[in-house]
Every structure is written in structure tokens, then in C-alpha cells.
Design a protein around this nucleic acid. Structure first.
Lengths: 348, 348
DNA sequence: ATGAAAGCGCTAACAA
DNA sequence: TTGTTAGCGCTTTCAT
């Protein structure tokens, strides 16, 4: 690894000059000729700055700490981290990712991250909810991901659950479904509440009356399948908006048992938490992908802007923002929930 | 953050002495009284070493670089990383995780990791296969995860595909299944080859003759469902060993359409790549979990032992090593593929 | 047994 | 415009 010292020696200037030039702070301070001499030598030698040495003086490591609650084991956490990493990398930052279980382990991880001098923290939860950032993070820039601050004091990103459901339901409406059911989650959580509301609003905006008997909120367990069975037999829906893959599976199972074919006899739109169905085969199942990557991306940009005290270039938003396919096209295998488009992400 | 300097000042000794003591290299070199004085002051002040400053001198950062090929987006990558993190953390190491797509991006990430002075690398692939570690890693300690080296020169861990299949098939045999089908993957890959072999071996060891018509290798696509349908109708299996969740889904779909109930009319054992079914509801589906966490854990231990040039304490193996449930018990929702047990993991 | 001093690679006052 | 100097927090020789 080449050092500034070596460059200084080989070009006959002082280390300070090298430092100035290589940090782009030479404008009007260093002789342009010397500057380019230094620059050439640097590229010639393949010089790369030693960020650790620099951090010793500057107290800035360009390392970000990503704290997640076992989120690494959930299938979708990867998307968040990937997005955060991509954005971080674009700005020359690295990510330390740690996952915690208990409270104690969390404080441990935080302490470790602090020792390594991280410049700021991501604080991420496993599913969209209201959370409290530990006080040990008080003096640091923090951004919450897939969670929101109780006091709304910490910047945060979450999926726009309402719009996700609104879009999904609309898609079923446009596909010609007459009796659209919602197979949701019987635990109260932000995602459930928002999606139910979006489902209702879409129906309402389409001039339909909301029929509570078409709503079936279940858990992931035995009784769930019976409840969905009952939904089939009682109300004979021809369209289903499903809270997630697991709920969609109940619908598939019930349909198959009744000789109904998804994509022909009934339509199904599900929110993608696991992606099995999307990866499997059913072009008849429309999967609305949660904007995990985008949340990660946004949060990294936000965090870095806080750290550097300046706006980051949000035009760097990733390519994955595919436009929503036209509604009259055949139902696609996947709708990408585009960032900053139709409010599919909410930032605070 | 307290520094050694502060401790030195407050105890009236020199920084060198503090360094010696706090690094446990004081045996017979520092007056025990002084030593404990220093130690007390350190805990009193809550001293924590600054690893970055130390690394400037020692050239050891205690940071490990985890390189994965977009693995962060695959559902199971999280398990590997989590295991690696837990082990690393136990030895006072941190992980930089990066994922790459193309060749160029990989070299970039590697360069960045080097600049941050990582002590060694994990090189991980998305699915068990033979791979080549980039030459840019040649001078560093490297461990491969879920992949093996072409020349068998790099230490590596991979799931024991054979034993996974052998166990799974055995389970169906012990459950009383007479006609056990294998729904596999029609692409040739280590997992497919190993699992097919394990399936065959289990049948053979049980004194059964292998019937090729019970094997149905498919991709994740439309024709797959038809192929599995044909399997049902042609051979009427009463037990299914499935390559993964997606393949298990075909079996579920076909069963439901025929009025067959999993767990009653047929038995299904699937290898868990996505976990939807395990998380959903079917106690009748046995999911063999891949030992991702354990692979991560092992690889971190191995890597650290290479770095430090000494054996690490493998008694630290994680708790998740649940014993396999007794074979005559009702088929459980999940079998944990225990590390170093029945060879469920292969290390090289 | 202890401390002074040098130095890891870099930045930032301050001189010149 | 350039170089000298000091120092970030720590380790490590080398005197004492």
C-alpha cells in the first residue's frame, strides 16, 4: 500500500502538500504544476488513502452502523441492507451490520460500533412499527428503517402500506373482479391497519360498497386455512388481496381444493414478504414487492446527509425503480413498488 | 471515550505501562500493585480500546470482509451472515459485508475492504457450487462459504447435500411411506446431484429398489406443475422429498386438486430454502433446514484461526444445534440440521 | 520494573 | 505557495 510519504518523497514535495492535493483542497493553495505532478504520481503508484489513519485525526470513519433486530434472518432484510450498501458505497461509506436479539446484546453491539468510530446509525426493525431508539444513540446521527419514531423526532422510512393496498386492490378492480376479498393479518400492526384502509379506500373510490364479510384476518396457523375456506364458501370472491405470501398460500390451497384456477377463475394479488410464489411459477399471482431496497437506499442517503451536513444527491436513486406496468396489460408476475412514486414509501 | 493517556495521567504511570497492563502483557513485567491500579482505573473510567488506533500500529484491524454474490438478497444469506457475525463477535471481530454483482464491482469491493485493512475474507456464493477465489485475495486468509474451491486449496464449508437427502428420505421411510418420490431440480448443481444420490442411497439402504419413474426433476416454471401432476397420476406416490419450497408447492397444489391431504394421504419433506411453508401452517410438512447459520459460524471460526494462527475454541458452537427429533415421533414442523452431527455440513 | 521516544498514515495549524 | 510541526491513540523498542 502506497503512502502519502512515498508520494512526497518521489515527487520532492512535503507530505502536507500531498495531503492537500489528494484531498482536493489545493485550489489556489498549491502550484497547479506541482499538484498534477502529485496526482500523476499517486495514480502511477496506485495510491489509495488509508481511511483508518485518516479517521484517527478527523474523527470521521466513513463507517455506518446498521443495527437490526435479527433482521438479517428475515428474508427481506437483505434488500434493505443491499440498498443501504449501494448508496453508502456511492458516497464512499462502508457498513457494519450487526443484529441483536435482547436488549443487552443491543447495547453491546452499539458500544462496539462506537468504539470503531461509526459516524452514524441505522436503526431497523423486522417489521414496520413504532419503536424507540436507545438513548445510547442520542448523540449520533440516526435514521430509522421500516420503523418510525414514537416522538417523530428521528428521520425514518417505512413502506406506504396504504398505497400498496390501494394499488393492489385497484389492480383487481381493473382486472374485472367483482367480489374482492382481503385476506389480512389478525394482529394489529401498521401494515395490517394501513393495508386494510387502502383496500377499503380503493373500493370506495371505485364506487363500491365495502363488505366486511369479504375481509378475513388470520394468523399463520391451522385455523387460518379453515377461515379462508369459509370465506370461499360464504362469499365466493373472485379476487383476493393478500397480506403476504403465507395468506396467499391459503387462497391457493382453497382454490385448488375447489377446482378453481388462479388467473382464470379467481385473481390474486399478494404483498411479497417471502417471494416464493413470485419465484415459483404463477404468472397469475401478482406480487407487490415491498420497497426494501429503496428504504435502505433512502435511509443511507439521509444518514449521510445528516453526517456531512449537506444534501446528498437524490438523483442517484437506483435503477430498480421500474415504472408500474400499464393496468390493462396482462397481470405481470411482479409489480415493483417504485420509490417516491405513488408514495409507495413514506419518509418522516 | 477514555484513552490510555487519561488512565496514565490519573494513575501516575506511563502510557506504555498502561498499554502493557491493558493488553494483559504485564505478567512479570509490571508491578502487580501498579497493574491492578491501572486496571481499576480503566474499569472505573469505562475504558474501551480504540481498535482503529491500535490497528495503525499493528496492521490488524479485527475486521473481516464478507464478500457475497448478491447473496444478501437471497433469503438464506442472512443466516450465514448472522452465524459469521455471532462467531466473529465472540472473538472480538467485526464484519464488513459487501455484495457484488459483476466482476468489476467485486474487484472494487475487494479494494475497498483492503483499504480498510480487513484481516481476512469470507468468499460466499449464492448456492453451493465450485468457484474460484479472485487472485486479488491471494495474499489474505480466505474461507469459502456455501462453495468449494476448484483446487481444494481454500478452506470451505458446504451443506452435506447427500446426508440431508438421506435423512429426509429415511424419515419418509420410517413414516411408513411405500412409494417415495423425489421432486428435484432439473439443472445440474451440487445440491441436486447430492440430494438425488442421498435419496437413492436411503432407499437402497432400506432394501428398496430405486424407481426412476418416481423422480421428477423440474425447474421453477409452468411445465413444472404439469410434470408433477403427471408424477401424481402415473405413479401415485405417498411420500415426497422435495428439493425446496418451490417444488414442495407443486406437490401441495397437485395434492389439493386431487383432494389429497398432506399429512394424511401423503407425506412431504422439503428442504428449506425459503421457509414459507415452515412459517405458514403445515405441521404435516417436514422442513429440513439448511445449516446456513452453522456454515457462517464455522467459517468465521476457521478464518479467525487462520488469522491468529491458533486454534479457536469450537466448543463455542451455537445453541441452535437442536438434536434431531426421534423418528417415531409425529413429524415435526422443522428439523434442524445440526452442525457436525450426521455430517450435515462438510468442511474442506 | 518503568518510562521516554519513535512511529503507524494522515490532517491541520502555523510558519516561512 | 510550501514546509514544519504537532498530534490523533496506540504499540514497541530501547534506555534506565
Amino acid at each position: 500500500m502506497t503512502t502519502m510519504k512515498e508520494i512526497a518523497e518521489q515527487t520532492g514535495v512535503s507530505i502536507s502538500t500531498v495531503s492537500l492535493v489528494l484531498n482536493g483542497r489545493d485550489e489556489g493553495r498549491v502550484n497547479p504544476t506541482l499538484a498534477s505532478l502529485v496526482r500523476n504520481k499517486a495514480t502511477e503508484l496506485g495510491y489509495k488513502i488509508n481511511p483508518l489513519a485518516r479517521s484517527l485525526r478527523t474523527n470521521k470513519t466513513r463507517i455506518l452502523g446498521f443495527i437490526s433486530e435479527e433482521v438479517a434472518t428475515t428474508p427481506y432484510a437483505g434488500g434493505i441492507i443491499l440498498g443501504a450498501q449501494d448508496a453508502a458505497s456511492a458516497y464512499g461509506y462502508m457498513l457494519f451490520t450487526v443484529s441483536t436479539d435482547g436488549k443487552a446484546s443491543e447495547e453491546n453491539e452499539i458500544a462496539t460500533l462506537k468504539r470503531y468510530g461509526v459516524d452514524g446509525f441505522f436503526y431497523s426493525k423486522m417489521s414496520n412499527r413504532i419503536a424507540q431508539v436507545p438513548k445510547s444513540l442520542d448523540d449520533y446521527p440516526v435514521v430509522m428503517v421500516d420503523a418510525t419514531d414514537h416522538d417523530n423526532k428521528i428521520p425514518s422510512v417505512e413502506p406506504d402500506e396504504f398505497m400498496i393496498a390501494y394499488d393492489a386492490t385497484n389492480r383487481l378492480i381493473k382486472a374485472g373482479c367483482e367480489r374482492i376479498a382481503y385476506v389480512g393479518c389478525s394482529e394489529s400492526m401498521i401494515a395490517q391497519d394501513g393495508r386494510l384502509a387502502g383496500y377499503q379506500a380503493a373500493l370506495h373510490d371505485a364506487g363500491r360498497v365495502f363488505d366486511p364479510s369479504l375481509v378475513c384476518n388470520v394468523l399463520n396457523n391451522g385455523p387460518a386455512l379453515r377461515a379462508v375456506s369459509k370465506l370461499f364458501d360464504d362469499t365466493h370472491p373472485d379476487g383476493f388481496f393478500c397480506f403476504n405470501d403465507a395468506r396467499a398460500w391459503y387462497v391457493y390451497e382453497c382454490a385448488a381444493r375447489r377446482g378453481l384456477t388462479v388467473g382464470k377463475d379467481i385473481s390474486v394479488v399478494g404483498v411479497d414478504n417471502h417471494r416464493v410464489f413470485a419465484e415459483t411459477l404463477e404468472p397469475q399471482l401478482t406480487t407487490v414487492e415491498l420497497p426494501h431496497y429503496e428504504m435502505g437506499y433512502w435511509s443511507a442517503c439521509k444518514l449521510i446527509s445528516m453526517i456531512e451536513g449537506k444534501d446528498v444527491d437524490t438523483s442517484v436513486w437506483p435503477d430498480t425503480r421500474a415504472p408500474l406496468p400499464p393496468l390493462n396489460a396482462p397481470i405481470p408476475a411482479k409489480i415493483h413498488c417504485a420509490l417516491l412514486e405513488k408514495g409507495s414509501v413514506v419518509v418522516h
